[in-house]
Amino acid sequence: MPGTGVRMKIGLFVPCYIDAFYPKTGIATLELLEKLGQDVEYPLDQTCCGQPMANSGCNKDAAAAEALFVKNFAKYDAIVMPSGSCAHHVKDNFDAIPQTDEVRHVRKNTYELVEFLHDVLKVDAFPWAEFPHKVGLHNSCGTLRALRTASMSELGEPFFSKPMDLLTKVRGISFATPRRPDECCGFGGTFSVTEEAVSAKMGVDKVRDHHDAGAEYIVSADTSCMMHQQGCAERAGVPIRFIHIAEILNGARA
């Protein structure tokens, strides 16, 4: 088994939009963690981490979802999710409910999938993975500037990229570099509807940037960004495909 050989009891959180629209991403995450020898459970009563309400300022309305999240996940060693923005919410902003020991445990042990694979399991190989395509990596703002899974261009810090570290272990993969790699794609949660015009313009600019750089696929640890980008690409006729990093690491070929 590649990695440290640590075996943990993991609670898998599959955000609402992945559950409903991108089940393949949830399946890939589960299978990948299983392949890596983890004991994974998906609590059936899960719904949402509370982020949409909290980000809209309606923090009190996030309380029920947050309480349910804790109820579902408090018993696990680690809570893993294929979504940077949800992980960011749980770790950094999850305060609509009293901060009990249970809540603190959940917040401390919540991981976005890439950081879990990279930092906790320290996976050093994905022998089953091969992706013979040129991809553009999209780091969501949550993973880039909050979870810090990659270096940020604004700070001029030495280059590092946890998702890139993982992807370079995949056979046959190559990378396209867009002109503005760190630029937000414009999803922004409810921003995507309340500021529709700006959001969609940012989205189409983002997918064109990747397409112009030669990417066949945009790959990301955040499905929400890609759901938005895919919508923009399809409407504008930009021929580019989208895939979650979990699917590539789990061995998807296309």
């Binding site: 939009y17 559950d19 629209f21 991108y22 089940p23 949830g26 759901m227 895919q230 504008a236």
Partner: peptide, 13 residues
Amino acid sequence: KNRELPHPVKQTF
């Protein structure tokens, strides 16, 4: 307005 909706899937996760 300027975006397609996500594609429907047969089964949720």
